[in-house]
Each structure stands twice: as structure tokens, then as C-alpha cells.
Amino acid sequence: MNTTRFAQAPAYFPPNHDGMHCLRLQGHEAGPSESLWLGVSVLLPGGHTSLDASAVEKHYVVLEGEVCIRTPDEAVTLQQFDSVRLAPGEARQVSNPGNRPAMLLLAMPYPKA
């Protein structure tokens, strides 16, 4: 078993994330994981990522606030406990359009070797 207390979760600093504080809950520097890692991002009002894709799928769950997920084809605003899955290679932009901080859970597999 690997336990990560939220208060001790290590921060990580992904490129092209502005107005966001990202914490690793499982995997990478937060501890062992064979297939996926979990993170939480706190998005300040106006916080966002650039419109980028990754080689693996991503799953997001809004824990607090509201978060807009935009792809080249559509945009959706998610509320608390709403979720979205993005396919491998699907570009996405994440943003907080509201005036309150938002919290977003990310689950993502490790890239295939």
C-alpha cells in the first residue's frame, strides 16, 4: 500500500500551465505505480493550459468549482463531480472561467515504452 496525504503531496510543474498549482497524489515522485498516475490541479480564476495533446488518454473529474475543457471540435463546462475522457492525441485546453478557485483530479496512464 502507498499512502499519500494531501498535505504532503509533492508539487510538479508541467509546461504550459498558467495560474495552476499541480500536486501528484500517486505515481512518479508520489510513490510506486505500474500503470497510471493521479494528480490534482488547483486552478485559480483565469488559470489555464495551452491547447496541447498527449500520447495517452486523460481522465478529469472536477472536485470543486467549474472547469472548461476545450478541444479543437468542442468545449464543455464541467461542474462538481462531472468528468471527461480525452483520447490519446486529442488536443485539449483546460481553464477556469469562474471567479472562484477550481480543483481538478487527473488520472493518466504512463506512456507505453
Rank of each mutant, 00 (worst) to 15 (best):
P101E: 14
A75F: 05
E29N: 08
R92F: 11
A55V: 15
E29A: 09
L78E: 10
T49F: 03
F6E: 12
A102E: 07
S83C: 08
P109C: 09
E90S: 11
L23H: 14
G65P: 04
A53P: 11
Y60V: 02
V61F: 09
V94K: 10
V56R: 01
M103H: 06
G65S: 10
L51H: 03
D82I: 02
L104S: 04
P45I: 00
G65F: 02
G89M: 08
A55I: 15
S95A: 08
Q79E: 08
S83G: 14
N2C: 03
D52Q: 08
T77A: 04
A113W: 03
A11D: 12
E66Q: 09
E34P: 00
E64L: 08
V61M: 11
L38E: 01
G47D: 09
L44W: 10
P10S: 14
W37Y: 13
A11Q: 13
H48I: 00
G65V: 00
V40S: 05
D82V: 01
R24M: 06
G39H: 08
D18K: 14
R24V: 03
S33W: 07
K112D: 13
H21F: 08
A53M: 11
R24Y: 00
R70D: 04
H28Q: 10
T3P: 05
P15T: 13
L23E: 15
M108K: 07
A91R: 06
